[in-house]
C-alpha cells in the first residue's frame, strides 16, 4: 500500500484529506507543520505528500526545499494543497519541486485527478 503524508495545520483539513486519500487506497500519516513533516520523512519517506503552504514553525515552501536536500528526499511526489492561488505562487511551488497543485477548497474528484496527474496513482 502506498503511503501519503498529509501536512496541514488544520485538523479538520487533515481529517477530510485522510478520508479521501484512504478511499483512493493510501496509508496516511499526518503532520501539523513542516518541522513535524520533516521528522516523519527522515523516519520513513512517503510515496506522496499533500502539503499546505501557510503553517506555523515551517511553511510548505520551506519544507519542500529542505525535503529535496534530504537523502531520498527527491522521491516523494508532492502535491500542494493551499488557499494560495496566484500564478506566481504556483510557479514557485513547481520550481521548488512540486508535482501538482490544488487550490482550496477541494473535493475528492480534484484530489484523485491531481494525484493521477502527479503519477502517484
Amino acid at each position: 500500500m502506498k503511503t501519503c503524508l498529509v501536512v496541514d495545520d488544520s485538523r479538520v483539513i487533515r481529517k477530510v484529506a485522510r478520508r479521501i486519500l484512504e478511499d483512493i487506497g493510501f496509508e496516511i500519516a499526518e503532520a501539523g507543520d513542516g518541522v513535524e513533516a520533516l521528522a516523519w520523512c527522515r523516519a520513513m519517506m512517503p510515496d506522496a505528500i499533500l502539503l499546505d503552504w501557510n503553517m506555523p514553525v515551517m511553511n510548505g515552501i520551506d519544507f519542500i526545499r529542505r525535503l529535496r536536500q534530504e537523502p531520498g528526499g527527491d522521491q516523494p511526489r508532492v502535491v500542494f494543497c493551499t488557499v494560495e492561488n496566484d500564478l506566481a505562487r504556483i510557479r514557485e511551488a513547481l520550481d521548488a519541486g512540486a508535482a501538482e497543485y490544488i487550490m482550496k477548497p477541494f473535493d475528492g474528484d480534484i484530489i484523485a485527478s491531481k494525484f493521477a496527474e502527479a503519477g502517484v496513482i
Binding site: L87, I90, K114
Partner: peptide, 20 residues
C-alpha cells in the same frame, strides 16, 4: 472557475496557458 480548472487540467498547462 477555479473548480473547473482543477478537474483534469495539469497544473503545468494552467501555468502555461491561463491567466488569472
Amino acid at each position: 472557475t477555479q473548480f473547473e480548472i482543477q478537474r483534469g487540467l495539469p497544473v503545468r498547462q494552467l501555468v502555461q496557458h491561463f491567466e488569472k
